[in-house]
Computed example of a mutant assay.
Amino acid sequence: MTKFLVWIETKFMPPMAKLAEQKHLKAIRDGVISTLSLILVGSFFLIIANPPIASWAEAIAPYTADIVIPFRITMGLMSIYASYGMGYSLAKSYKLDGITGGVLSLATFLMLTVPVNVDALLPEGQGIGWVLPMGNLGGAGMFSAILAMIFAVESLRFFKNRNLMIKMPEQVPDSVARSFEALIPGAFVITIVWIIRVLLDFDLNSFILSIFTPINDILGNNLIGVLVPVIFITLLWAAGVHGMSVIGSVARPMWLVMLDANGQALADGAAPNQLPYIAPEQFYQWTVWIGGAGSTLALCILLLFAKSVYLKQVGRFSIIPSLFNINEPLIFG
């Protein structure tokens, strides 16, 4: 056992600690987490539209389509919000302008979705012009949003480091100067994506999903796929590294794809026991990590009755966060 712990500390922990600080993974983590509030709000409306009591469900059935609109605008567009957040975070890590990085990432991601003219599908005089299909703007487009963010911000950094930008005089307001600085990188990024998506007719979203769908099936509907993240997260915690920060940076985009697929299926009328994925991130939160990573709620309760004054204090200030699966105060305490 001692040799195993030494191996964790000397061989396993150092590369994992470096991975947790990798700029692109940190940007993905920060950008995805920035969408959490919108996901929670959208989920509330989804719960209201699908109450667990049959009589309530029948009463609100005529209004379900209207009730789930906030869900479709929040979770249904989560990749849009995440693309901006990830681009902002990565640009700031390079000491570039965060707003420019976020906007370029968002524009690059939207360029991957071809607008559709729906006038021909509607009666004459009722046309609404061009629309963006929402199918790839939610969780299904998360991997494309990540690639778009990396390409956009790295291109911005490339042009910035080589001074291939339009410089404005100091008297020009910063907001205007930033717009002109982003002109050349923006033209480059959008042109490249336009060539790939429109001229070459290469659907990056479909290609990436075809690659990651088998992985999602393993992570979302397979016991081994569930155990692997749990084992790595607990090993990292045992070595003193925040396990969810490392593993979550890699797995959370896939978990969000599963969550979005489940939410869309539920909003479209699927039964709760017929959703496509069993184990998105919420599965871990409410069936594996009771009280936080390591299922420490029971330990927190035991500490409330400890003879040690210090341990009793740790239990007291940790009990409330532990009820919400936040156990950093307990672990570090």
Rank of each mutant, 00 (worst) to 15 (best):
T191F: 13
M244H: 14
T10F: 05
V257R: 11
A20R: 14
G85D: 03
G333L: 12
L204Q: 04
T2H: 13
G333H: 11
V241Q: 15
I73F: 12
F207R: 05
A82T: 11
P169R: 04
L110I: 06
G220I: 00
P14W: 07
S245L: 14
M1T: 12
V6C: 09
F202T: 09
I150D: 07
H24F: 08
S55L: 12
F188H: 07
T287F: 05
P14D: 10
S37E: 02
F332R: 13
F212R: 03
W130C: 01
P173Q: 07
G240W: 06
D97G: 05
N136Q: 13
F4P: 00
M78P: 00
L121A: 10
A270H: 05
M111G: 14
P276N: 08
A187C: 14
M75V: 13
A187P: 03
A187F: 13
G292Q: 09
D268I: 08
M86L: 05
F4W: 08
P272R: 11
L96C: 04
N222H: 00
P229N: 05
G315R: 00
T35H: 02
S79Q: 01
P214I: 02
L259G: 12
V198E: 14
N50C: 07
A267R: 03
L106E: 11
S55W: 01
G269R: 03
M111C: 14
L235H: 00
F159D: 09
I211F: 11
D217N: 15
L235G: 03
S318P: 07
E328L: 08
V116E: 12
L164N: 10
F143N: 01
Q274E: 15
S37M: 07
